[in-house]
């Protein structure tokens, strides 16, 4: 298992700094199928269709850095785990 090549979806990831730099919104176009479930569930209406295409040639999503509060609902409802919200630790 460990000798196998890394899965193709790891090659590309688009990141956006959101919530005043306190978090990073990462989307893996190699996993995103463009279903739009995250876009409808976003309580802030922060997600919109992106120019970047996903694994099936459908649009992926991109967050509005002003609106996104990094609540993580999109990450939770994504059936493909294509979205990762990474909270940035404050420098100590």
């Amino acid at each position: 298992m460990s000798t196998a090549a890394a899965p193709a979806y790891l090659k590309k990831v688009y990141t956006t700094e959101v919530n005043k730099g306190k978090a990073v919104f990462a989307i893996f176009p190699g996993l995103c199928k463009g279903c739009g479930l995250c876009k409808e569930k976003c309580p802030e209406g922060a997600l919109s269709w992106s120019e970047k295409l996903g694994v099936y040639g459908t649009p992926t999503v991109t967050p509005d850095p002003e609106l996104c509060k990094a609540c993580g609902i999109c990450e939770r409802v994504c059936p493909d785990c294509a979205i990762a919200i990474i909270r940035v630790d404050k420098e100590k």
Binding site: Y9, G30, L31, K33, C35, V55, T58, P79, D80, A82
Partner: peptide, 9 residues
Amino acid sequence: KPHKFCPGC
């Protein structure tokens, strides 16, 4: 992954 289910499944 990505798994074989339809988008939104």
